[in-house]
């Protein structure tokens, strides 16, 4: 269970990025956070990951307070961020510690198989396309078997076709491992297709403006009327609909 309570973040510059944000996610729930740029959604993820410290409020995972990066959390960044000097296999095992080489290898191959890249274990990151590299980043986040997976606009740098493809991939991975996921995105369709709950943030300072519960089973039909209605509602809430 991921619990975020009254979370605020004020930077040294005096800018308030987040103000009193809170939500609770049951194990295996998928939360999408949408919002315009500068609404603090990336800050929220960095706080949950323990990369930054909150100014007020607290975060707990399975009733353990988060006070720094910890093995329960996996993070997929906007860019793949693979180490260019490591083979794909070693990039995947980058975060695994305290295991024998054989066990590490086996886990890397399993994670790579899940993202369909087992044949590329010995390749270097430069030999991969953007979509493949991002799949390796997902494998790297999964290999530690985190109970919370954080994704910061993970597919925003990819072309539309690759993006759809990776969204499906993410869902099939989620079905197998059921991690709690927080997906920050500016792609409203992506949020509606994947999440159990969509949080709309507005800033600045970033606050939760509205929460939408989605009950429909996945995969969801993006062309359905209800889907389109919700999309318009969210655009409305973000003031993005032209008059």
């Amino acid at each position: 269970m991921l619990r975020v309570r009254d979370l605020s973040k004020r930077f040294e510059s005096g800018v308030t990025a987040l103000e009193r944000v809170g939500f609770t996610l049951e194990r295996g729930e998928i939360l999408a956070v949408v919002g315009t740029s500068g609404c603090g959604k990336s800050t929220l993820l960095r706080l949950i990951a323990g990369l930054d410290r909150p100014s007020a409020g607290n975060i707990s995972i399975d009733n353990q307070d988060v006070d720094g990066p910890n093995p329960l959390v996996g993070f997929v960044f906007q860019e793949p961020r693979l180490m260019p000097w490591l083979k794909i296999r070693d990039n995947v095992t980058f975060g695994l510690s305290g295991l024998g080489a054989q066990e590490k290898n086996a886990r890397a191959l399993r994670a790579l198989e899940e993202v369909g890249l087992a044949d590329f274990a010995e390749a270097l990151p430069q030999q991969l396309s953007g979509g493949m590299a991002q799949r390796v980043a997902i494998a790297r986040a999964l290999v530690t078997e985190p109970s919370v997976l954080l994704l910061d606009e993970p597919f925003s740098a990819l072309d539309a076709f690759t993006r759809l493809n990776l969204q499906d991939h993410l869902l099939s991975i989620w079905r197998r491992h059921r991690p709690t996921m927080v997906l920050v995105t500016h792609d409203i369709e992506e949020a509606l297709a994947l999440a159990d709950r969509v949080v709309i943030m507005r800033g600045a300072p970033g606050r939760i403006h509205r929460t939408i519960e989605l009950r429909e089973d996945r995969p969801r039909k993006r062309t359905a009327t209800e889907f389109q209605t919700l999309k318009e509602e969210i655009l409305d809430a973000l003031h993005l609909v032209p008059a």
Partner: peptide, 21 residues
């Protein structure tokens, strides 16, 4: 919704750039 198996996805990505060999 477009559903692809992981093999098909790998083939699709191969079209972008195959490895050196």
């Amino acid at each position: 919704m477009i559903m692809l198996t992981s093999e098909a996805a790998a083939v699709a990505d191969l079209a972008y750039r195959a490895p050196a060999e």
